[in-house]
Design a protein around this nucleic acid. Structure first.
Lengths: 347, 347
DNA sequence: CTGAAAGCGCTTACAG
DNA sequence: CTGAAAGCGCTTACAG
């Protein structure tokens, strides 16, 4: 492997000079520069980033922790994040907790070993907030609250809930079924902001005198489970006339409805929450509440930037041991708007 | 930041001893080990992987180059790859060429700068084979041929084509429309093995006296384009009674058929090629040819392992400058079987 | 079994 | 403007 030393020798200059030329920093005479560049070409020199990483204590890599990239929701999120990070010359390390046998803590471990510069946390975690706040490295959460000092970004799920409820009420729905995660996540002080759309729909339909039942969907990881969930809805609630759930659930519900000869949207309305590509592949164009993935990714990347900058800053000035997460002043959570897109599955 | 030196000082031993304890290599007396471990705990020591990386000239990271992870095909491939790599303690760097403004050559550049240990190439490239063979670092191609010495893995597309043709012929199809990539890729000596399933179907239907037209789909990146493609098929070929295309195309074709009141499968059969989750979300359970993603990922990872091992080996023994890609003896391409799964869209 | 030393390939003050 | 030196944090022969 040809290194800077070889280039320096070939060009008859010092290693420092080669470094200056490679990095375009500092002043180098045109004469020297030419000699060095010639030598670099001659030897096909390619700088080794690992040495730089060590010196800077930086990898320019961000880990994106998601349950699985097989799910369109997380694929979409990840794709948009990669775009944002690439703009900032940051690489995206795919960290899924369901696809690999690697839990979040192993990824956090890698963060602490400086294998990455930061983590976007968008997967489930059993850890208590004090776990997350004690890590003391750049972490930004998506759609969950990991504790004081860990900035977080989420969609405006309350608004999403209102949009859905308004549609259902306005179209004369009588019996709504909501599909979502484990009901245990709905406890007071939940760290899952997503539940807010469910809660909003439940509240508004109740006020309007509309029946609203809740069905727990299978794991986000398992598509087959969603199929079973869809079938179960019709069995358990034969008079259901509106189903609300994630794209995947909505698509499966539509498929099941067609199979049972139920007319959509006349007899049954379906609303998909998320608005990924999955919603476009269904049997009809699904009506949906679309999350603004581009906006979410931009906000997450922005927060990550700040976290990283704060870390660099505090390293220079702050005392080593003091555990102080960056940007204490961070909002409890940045909120990104959602939008309602009427399709062929509502009336 | 607390380093090995601090631990050594605290424990009253040398840095070498700390290193031995951390790595569990070599012999260390229980006495020393205990002292070191106590000190590590005391100081909350966490090893910095960057230094190791530099010494080993390794990152344990593999870049996966795909057009976009938004497409279920590549999401599925990537998810399975990550699983395989994780088993081998390798991390997965997401390298998409369409989501970010980063082309393959930038990723190759990163490979050469030792920001990763290898690349799985599954995206389009304009480069000639001599570009790829001259890189001289671990590269494994998926579903494309990048030149002598670059191992490659693909599905058995001929078999896939035969399965499709048999179904169509057996069910009495009269007018088949195949949807696929730009026809220019079909030239003699193409580096795109995928076209073999199209060619096989065309040949077999021709022999059976069945009409078979080819429609170019939009970019793999663009889902909306697929919708337009689907609509165009029905306009251009009003008597079409069988459509074959990727999951996404098939799903959109089904949607369009239902919209036009065309009965599937009685009047129109649809076969999806790939067999990702996208095929399950469609209006009906699509009949499909499923690629064995797990098998593909395993084969790719296996080849990558060999490439990396070969690189390490040649580094020790071989002379530096000699460009010689690992495993010259690699097969022209490893072939993974596909399977036919009957759904509700064929008869 | 343990320690002093050299080195991974680069960067950055610091003299000149 | 250029070079010699120290150092990023760890690993690994090599003496003892």
């Amino acid at each position: 492997m040809v290194g800077m030393r070889d280039v320096a020798k070939e060009a008859g200059v010092s290693v420092s000079t080669v470094s200056l030329v490679v990095n375009g920093t500092g002043y180098v005479s045109d004469d020297m520069r030419a000699k060095v560049e010639a030598a670099m070409h001659e030897l096909h020199y390619i700088p080794n980033e690992l040495a730089r990483n060590l010196y800077r204590n930086r990898t320019n890599t961000i880990g994106v922790i998601v349950p699985t990239i097989l799910h369109p929701f997380f694929a979409t999120l990840t794709a948009h994040l990669q775009r944002e990070f690439a703009k900032r010359d940051l690489k995206t390390l795919l960290c899924s907790t369901a696809d690999a046998a690697t839990g979040e803590s192993e990824y956090v471990n890698m963060l602490q070993r400086h294998m990455m510069d930061g983590i976007i946390m968008a997967a489930h975690t059993e850890h208590q907030p004090d776990y997350w706040t004690s890590i003391n490295r750049p972490i930004v959460a998506f759609d969950r609250i990991l504790g004081e000092g860990v900035p977080s970004v989420r969609s405006d799920h309350e608004a999403g809930g209102r949009m859905i409820a308004r549609q259902l009420i306005g179209s004369g729905a009588r019996h709504v079924v909501l599909v979502g995660g484990p009901r245990s996540q709905f406890a007071e002080g939940t760290t899952f902001p997503t539940v807010r759309y469910h809660l909003t729909v439940e509240q508004m339909t109740a006020e309007a005198g509309i029946a609203c039942d809740y069905v727990e969907a299978g794991s986000v990881t398992d598509v087959v489970a969603h199929e079973a969930t869809a079938a179960a809805i019709f069995q358990r609630y034969p008079d259901v006339d509106a189903i609300v759930g994630s794209d995947v659930v909505a698509a499966m519900a539509l498929q099941e409805a067609e199979r049972r000869g139920i007319n959509v949207p006349d007899e049954l309305q379906i609303i998909a929450y998320d608005g990924t590509m999955a919603a476009e592949l269904a049997g009809k164009r699904l009506t949906m509440v679309r999350q603004d993935f581009a906006g979410i990714a931009a906000a997450l990347a922005e927060q990550m930037d700040q976290q990283i900058e704060a870390e660099n800053g505090s390293e220079r000035s702050g005392q080593a041991g003091e555990p102080s997460n960056a940007s204490e002043s961070a909002q409890p959570g940045q909120v990104v708007p959602v939008s309602f897109i009427a399709g062929e599955t509502t009336r």
